[in-house]
């Protein structure tokens, strides 16, 4: 009579752990035309083939990544991980992780100054704006910025960074050379996205509370116009022609407005459901991609037919999208 010994736990455990690690690990593949969508609640990146619009991979990144942006040389895509206190760098061609920079406190929105000297991170949750040396991410200054500093914009000369303060309904200007608050001015309720106009004269501020884009003559610190778009106007993205900006109106029934900065008026509007948030325009100007924050999708708008072309299912709370083959960012 023979006995079959049960496999010992000591022998099985490493295999089980290896299986677990495999199951928990990353699934990704290399891509030719690669778009990367950032899913905040999942802590993942969805890799999308820009030709077939298929999701071809998923990368686990960190806790609560909220925004992404390319480095000025386009060699890396930086993902800001708010809850992990990290910046994670990816190759925008392949989606391969390049490196991690730790001890970056609660980075929410991030941005490089045009002269590439400063790297700025807002901490929405903790009411801070941090200024780093862009060369080595060494902290230079940490400024209190109540309340809820969100998006940012720079002037062409890299003298100022302008930050929207969502809960105090203000825009704060910080002098970059001195790292001091230069001024704070009131704006329309719940300001979110902010960009500099192509002529460097005006700040365009999306107001969620009022559903407008407010035009600020920043040198005079005065509001000169409010352009109605739709409820919950949230973010702005350049079309790349040095004149127009897309404005996402982040509601479930959502829409995206096209704003002309010469006439300071809305010239087109597209229905984009699901809470459109972050956007990016294809280099040929034929498509606009937008993350649908409340629908777990990336929406692709055909800019020729001006219709929603298709929806790409991604992860939970998609908050950023990027591809290298994009239109100009001014």
């Amino acid at each position: 009579m023979t006995h079959r010994h049960p496999a010992s736990l000591a022998r099985l455990l490493p295999r089980l752990l290896a299986l677990l690690v495999f199951l928990c690990g990353n699934q990704m593949a290399a891509h030719a035309g690669l778009a990367i969508a950032l899913n905040s609640a999942d802590g993942t990146l969805s890799l999308i083939d820009t030709d077939s619009y298929k999701v071809t991979g998923k990368i686990n990144v960190c806790k609560e990544p909220h925004h992404l942006m390319p480095t000025p040389d386009d060699k890396s895509l930086i993902v800001a991980c708010a809850a992990s206190n990290q910046l994670v760098f990816y190759d925008p061609l392949t989606g391969q992780e390049q490196r991690r920079v730790r001890d970056i406190s609660d980075p929410y929105q991030i941005g490089f100054s045009p002269n590439r000297k400063w790297f700025v991170a807002t901490s929405l949750r903790l009411d801070r704006v941090d200024i780093y040396d862009a060369a080595d991410f060494r902290l230079i200054a940490r400024l209190p910025a109540p309340k809820t500093p969100s998006h940012m914009a720079f002037d062409d000369a890299s003298q100022f960074v302008f930050v929207t303060l969502q809960d105090s309904n203000e825009v704060m200007a910080i002098s970059l050379p001195t790292q001091k608050v230069a001024w704070v001015m009131p704006v329309a309720p719940t300001p979110a996205g902010i960009v500099m106009s192509p002529d460097n004269r005006h700040l365009l501020v999306a107001s969620m509370g009022e559903g407008v884009v407010e035009v600020i003559e920043w040198r005079a610190r005065r509001s000169v116009r409010k352009i109605p778009t739709a409820t919950a106007a949230h973010n702005l993205q350049p079309k790349g022609d040095g004149r127009h900006f897309y404005v996402s109106n982040r509601t479930i029934d959502g829409s995206i407005s096209l704003l002309d900065t010469q006439t300071m008026s809305v010239v087109e509007k597209y229905d984009v459901p699901g809470g459109p948030d972050d956007m990016m325009v294809r280099a040929d100007g034929k498509e606009l991609w937008a993350t649908a924050r409340f629908a777990r999708k990336v929406q692709v708008v055909d800019l020729v037919s001006k219709q929603l072309k298709l929806s790409i299912p991604v992860g939970s709370s998609p908050h950023g999208v990027f591809f290298l083959n994009h239109a100009g960012l001014r």
């Binding site: 969100s150 969502q166 719940t190 509601t251 479930i252 924050r293």
Partner: peptide, 22 residues
């Protein structure tokens, strides 16, 4: 999303608490 859009978002925006939407 429907509950956010139709029940929660309107009062939050009216109260100037839009940053709490997420």
């Amino acid at each position: 999303g429907w509950l956010l859009d139709h029940v929660v978002q309107p009062p939050l925006l009216a109260l100037g608490m839009g940053s709490h939407l997420e």
